[in-house]
Simulated assay, not measured.
Amino acid sequence: MNRRGRLVLGALGAVVVGVLLWEGYKAVGPADGLSLAGARVLPRTDDAAMPHIATILSRFADPELSGGDPIWLVVLQACLFTLRSVALGFVLGGLVGLLLAVLMQRLRIVERGLLPYVILSQTVPLIALAPVIAGWGGRLSIGSYPWQPWMSVTVIAMYLAFFPVAVGMLRGLQSPAPIAEELMRSYAAGWWQTLVKLRLPASTPYLFPALRLAAAAAVVGAVVGEISTGTRGGVGRLVIEYSREATTDPAKVFTAMIGAAALGLAVAAVIGFSEFLLRRRRVRA
């Protein structure tokens, strides 16, 4: 079995294990959960808290409202709406991260002064930052085009996506052995030639893991941004809307959650497929 087959089999196995754990705990776990010192350690297993997997999946085929579109179509449309912010945030965050990594590799003083702040930026609570970004965006405009709520979500996604790329690419650009750098200097190669011919190819093993993390972070940022800013149309807002019906229709809440998780997996799969194509081309070369 090749590597791609093992990845597919591993992914299917993970899904099966997750379903078995869910149903197994629901079958043997206490209905009221388990609490220690007033804190709930294990969740409740009644149908209001943990619906059966079959119930959740069957809910996708039901109409969202009486006579309306089925839930799977509503969730798909919401995911496609969120995908716009995810894609833009991922691309912009990746470019910002790449530029910061190149700048920090080029100037050691920039690395020493900027890297701590790059790391510190990820400690700011996103749920507190999102309303601030939305408030600033409400006062901006792009020419005659007013700032849209989805743009604030894109900025939040970019904010989370740039960090893995900046750190991963910095490590990749610094990975060439000293003897390889000395060889480039012996050829009288300048900084730009060394970057293109040596450092960027050497950073490829670090780039794609960073891109996968950035893609997942962009999805998280977009979903949380939609929840925090109240942006309508996306899967984040759908989670909030469905959660209002959690007491009467708990399975409906999980449909939006599964949609958000599927969006993250789809974006990560695109990055993984791109990595596969690049490696295949390099092997042929």
Rank of each mutant, 00 (worst) to 15 (best):
Y117C: 07
A268Q: 07
S121I: 06
S85G: 11
P205M: 07
E275W: 08
T231Q: 09
G143A: 05
A215W: 09
L277R: 09
S186L: 14
L76C: 10
F81M: 05
T229D: 02
T248W: 10
P176G: 02
L95V: 13
A14R: 11
P125M: 06
P51I: 07
M184H: 05
A166P: 10
L103I: 14
A14Y: 09
G259E: 08
L83C: 08
T247H: 13
D46H: 07
L107N: 03
G221F: 00
T55E: 03
M50I: 09
R84C: 04
A14K: 14
P51R: 06
G190H: 09
M50H: 11
L98A: 06
S121Q: 07
I227P: 00
R232E: 11
S66I: 12
G5P: 05
V118P: 01
E182T: 12
P250R: 12
E182A: 13
S85E: 07
P125H: 01
V165F: 10
L278A: 01
E181D: 01
L36P: 08
L95M: 04
L207P: 11
G13C: 02
T255A: 14
S121M: 11
E111L: 12
C79V: 12
L76H: 12
Q122A: 10
M151C: 05
A180S: 11
A54K: 13
R171S: 05
A180H: 08
L80F: 14
